[in-house]
Write a protein that binds this DNA or RNA. Structure first.
Length: 301
RNA sequence: AGGGGCGUAGUACAAUGGUAGUAUAACGGUCUCCAAAACCGCUGAUGCGGGUUCGAUUCCUGCCGCCCCUG
């Protein structure tokens, strides 16, 4: 059995995942793009050893903050984890807030090995965004359906894909857009004002727990160039180190950015998955367990 | 108390005697290897009253509020 727990940040996914793992003999695969970094603990709201309560967690502390990590790795390794856990007769709990990662893992997304032509990449980086859009119109017109002309990052990505052999639109056309696993999807949700309160409190707590010190420990030359440092809770420190913002301002920015993230996460899960939502302001746990058991019953028939 | 200044969107700032802009927030959305990223859409304002004027957010004036200086 595979249970997937998703939802916006600060809805209590990690906690629920552990509860479910204990109750249903499961192990947890984290679908979070930031908690993979060993050095990022407080700011990523990473689950602690104690909170894991002895349940195995995969993809937590998976790599260092100066290493590269992406969806492809997550999908590839994640599927191995799933097989492994199931083969040992245990259940899989997937828990995380990174929508693309969860979707790539569960659906028939395909990521090929690609050889990146650095010269071509460099060539593209020198083009104007408008030129990039024109190029994509000529090379892979169908892909422009889902890429806005201003979205430089995605224009370059689609051009690189076409250059490496397979057009983005061709690849997507081959897929069935179906889930490849029979999974139970659980979404956690709350009223916006309730969630925002939780977020604000959590950020205050992060500072009490030593977020400033954690940042100081990993601070080094050009640290903010790192992909991992684009994470909320860390990137906001850059103006502080430049001497143009106070810690109080940094904290407010972290809160604001986290609220905006929560909204985007909600939008993604809500519109990309067919999920049943449970409000964390109600007695959701018993309802979830009831639904899981119903599903188990069906499967055993 | 006297003198001066300022009141424009939730916030920061523009502008004009004739349709009040920008940024940001808020709200909504896109998503196939940077996704806590990148990008898009949209709502929203001239403190209150009087006067001049065809027309006032703009000019004059009273009130209210805020700031600075002097005592």
């Amino acid at each position: 059995m595979i249970i997937v727990v998703v939802g916006a940040t600060a809805t209590g996914k990690s906690d629920l995942a552990v509860q479910l793992a204990k109750k249903y003999n499961g192990e947890i695969i984290s679908g979070d793009s930031i908690q993979v970094y060993k050095e990022l603990n407080i700011g990523s709201a990473k689950i602690t050893r104690e909170e894991m309560q002895g349940i195995p967690h995969y993809f937590i502390d998976y790599c260092h903050y100066d290493e590269d990590y992406n969806v492809k790795v997550f999908q590839e390794v994640g599927r191995k984890y799933i097989e492994d856990i199931l083969s040992r007769g245990k259940n899989v709990i997937i828990c995380g807030g990174t929508g693309l990662y969860i979707k790539a893992l569960l659906y028939d997304y395909v990521f090929h090995e690609e050889e990146i032509d650095e010269n071509y990449r460099k060539l593209l980086s020198e083009k104007s965004t408008e030129q990039l859009y024109q190029m994509l119109c000529e090379i892979d017109f169908n892909a422009t359906d889902t890429i806005h002309p201003n979205n430089r990052q995605r224009l370059i990505r689609a051009l690189l894909m076409a250059h490496s052999g397979e057009k983005k639109s061709d690849r997507i056309a081959k897929q069935e857009h179906k889930m490849i696993y029979d999974a139970i999807l659980i979404g956690l949700n709350a009223e916006r004002s309730y969630l925002y309160n939780r977020i604000n409190q959590r950020v205050d707590l992060m500072f009490e727990q030593g977020l400033v010190e954690e940042m100081q420990e990993i601070y080094k030359e050009n640290v903010f160039q790192l992909q991992s440092m684009k994470a909320i809770g860390y990137k906001e420190f850059e103006p502080y180190y430049l001497g143009i913002q106070t810690l109080e301002e940094v904290k407010e920015h972290i809160k604001k950015n986290t609220r905006q993230l929560a909204k985007r996460q909600y939008t993604f899960f809500n519109n990309q998955f067919d999920i049943k939502y449970y409000s964390i302001q109600e007695d959701y746990r018993s309802q979830i367990e009831k639904d899981i058991e119903e599903k188990l019953h069906e499967q055993n028939k």
